[in-house]
Design a protein around this nucleic acid. Structure first.
Lengths: 187, 187
DNA sequence: ACTATAAACTAATACCATTAGTTTTTCAAG
DNA sequence: CTTGAAAAACTAATGGTATTAGTTTATAGT
């Protein structure tokens, strides 16, 4: 009706995230998003820099939400407890928000400062948690990379249906992390 | 010129893989592929079941090529040597064929038998290599999942430019795998 | 009350996948 | 050697997509 619908960035990004989680990443188009918002698709250009810009915003939004979920899971845990809590929270997020999670790891090389900042926040959280283990600076970086890779690998492969067998993935995650942490102590 | 260009599946899939690696996954369209092959895009439907079918073929092709590269790297190595060789070959493949690698992990739930078989072959290779460590059957499955996740996580994150810092990723891979294997021995 | 701006709109373009229907070449059977 | 059928190319058309240009309208601030 009225030419002012009161759209703003949060509304748009959240609607897009809902489409991504409910119907898959490739279903989030400017057309489907505009329809969901009761608007014509060119109107979205007043708020977002095309489909590419929308994806960047989704990546930032998802990364912040993921970091918040992981942070919440930590409470005052430290050491192995903290590591397992992070892994559980990370996987829970990826399962609850499959589309949004996928978009999170999608922003490429384009130097978006806000995305870089959000990404750094998550890495910082991991680095701080790992400080419990008294690693030297360089080794700490390697181990954090390994932890991130392991988390993303599990989340990504599970999402594509790559773990065919019915043996519980959660148990795999627990055991693999435990193995990694034992190795960390004996090195 | 002549209405018979002699196209066949291998030619088509290899051309598509070249586009994927050179220009990125989203650039492999029936339009760009047809142009590269000197053909009109509807002609491709005589060989491939649309864009979706092409992607399935690319996933199979990439998986086979990846498995072959990993197999070649093994020679007669066993134990830690074999594990490090696999990791190095896996990463080398992902770096040499970024687009094809990305497509490899993309075939979803649709029950394509050939894709499932190719995927099982790679997993078998990992299982066999891990048999060196004398794990019981269930634990072996968990550890293989962890290894795969770790490999895919590193490959995927590196490809998206996620490891900002200039510290060598190869060293991270080596150290993280070493840590994992130490943990395996002490558990 | 007026005006400038922001946010919506319509219209148009270009690209993409896909389907339908047509032509042409090749290959094999008579 | 001819002929006929099937395979592989083609053209034409449709519907969906992003994006740009130009227009209208509501709103917020003077």
């Amino acid at each position: 009706m009225s030419p002012r619908k009161g759209l703003d960035m949060p509304t748009i990004v959240e609607a897009a995230a809902q489409i991504a989680d409910a119907s898959g990443v490739e279903e989030v188009t400017l057309a489907s998003l505009a329809q969901k918002l009761g608007v014509r698709s060119p109107s979205l250009y007043n708020h977002v820099n095309g489909l590419g810009g929308l994806r960047v915003q989704l990546a930032i939004y998802g990364l912040k939400k993921l970091t918040a979920a992981v942070t919440d899971s930590l409470q005052d845990k430290t050491g192995d407890d903290a590591m397992h809590a992070i892994a559980a929270a990370y996987m829970a997020f990826a399962r609850a928000h499959p589309g949004l999670y996928e978009l999170t790891l999608r922003s490429p090389d384009d130097g978006d400062a806000e995305y870089a900042a959000a990404s750094a926040l998550l890495v910082d959280l991991l680095v701080q948690t790992l400080s419990y283990y008294d690693l030297d600076r360089e080794k700490s970086i390697h181990i954090v990379r390994g932890f991130r890779s392991y988390l993303h690998g599990f989340a990504s492969i599970e999402q594509k249906g790559g773990f065919g067998m019915p043996i519980a993935v959660d148990e795999s995650i627990r055991l693999v992390l435990q193995t990694y942490l034992i190795g960390l102590r004996h090195s």
